[in-house]
């Protein structure tokens, strides 16, 4: 694994993000969305000094917006024929995928960093908020963002059409987000099914982190899903060589 190659590809993509209006639009929409939910959680009769109010809406916004960030990454390369040059450059497929993943993850991180004034306001006016839930809250958003981005890149590898890529990955992410709803469809006897779909659902793995509890199960879940989609994306690139 050549870190330099990953960095070069990531750097190119990050520059390209900031050179197009897309990244700014995504950031603005996310800020408005999460800001609204943070503000509304602060204007309840007995507001808590936490960022919990925007965690779940924020995660949902990430799931919807990340595919917009990632849809271009590989679909455009396929459409323009640049993928052929990239795949014949002295870099590995995995380095290409990781570079692109890193670039869009950086965009997610930057977007989230722009919301850091929420906790700042809490410290300024809220009177002694708990630091740990705030940290784990941001950690969970980063994890959800990374996951959304990995699924997004997977969708982008499947097609040369950006819209198709975005729709595919949003669909996949929505299934993962709402997977636990299907557990109600199963009869009471099918415990295994219920456990499985509950485990698959994103929201179930946010709960503990939102309250400041760092759980290995949750971390393993996110890391596994991210690694799985990156791996499958690399495989998809490789199938082009064998077709």
């Amino acid at each position: 694994m050549n870190l330099r190659a990953i960095g070069i590809i990531a750097g190119k993509e990050v520059r390209s993000y900031f050179g197009s209006p897309m990244a700014y639009i995504v950031m603005a929409v996310f800020l408005a969305f999460s800001g609204f939910f943070f503000a509304s959680s602060m204007s309840q009769p007995f507001p808590e000094a936490t960022v919990r109010g925007f965690l779940f809406p924020g995660a949902l916004a990430l799931l919807l917006l990340a595919p917009v960030l990632t849809m271009r990454l590989l679909a455009e390369e396929q459409k323009m024929g640049t993928l052929e040059l990239l795949l014949t450059a002295p870099v590995r497929d995995s380095e290409i995928v990781l570079g692109k993943f890193l670039a869009s993850f950086i965009m997610v991180a930057v977007t989230l960093a722009l919301t850091l004034y929420f906790p700042f306001l809490l410290f300024l006016f809220g009177g002694d908020p708990d630091l740990v839930p705030i940290l784990t809250g941001y950690l969970v958003l980063l994890l959800v963002g990374a996951m959304a981005v990995s699924v997004g890149i997977f969708g982008s590898a499947l097609t040369s059409n950006q819209i198709v890529a975005a729709v595919l990955s949003t669909g996949l992410l929505m299934v993962l987000w709402l997977a636990n709803l299907t557990s109600n469809l199963a009869g009471g006897s099918e415990i295994a099914w219920k456990t499985a779909v509950d485990y698959l659902a994103i929201s179930g793995h946010m709960q503990d982190l939102a309250f400041g509890i760092l759980n290995t199960t949750d971390l393993v879940y996110f890391v596994t899903v991210i690694a799985f989609f990156l791996f499958v994306t690399i495989r998809v690139l490789e199938t082009r060589r064998w077709r």
Partner: peptide, 12 residues
């Protein structure tokens, strides 16, 4: 390598 479709990034 120069592939048949010239591989360029138009935004660069």
């Amino acid at each position: 390598y120069l592939p048949e479709t010239v591989p360029l990034y138009l935004d660069m």
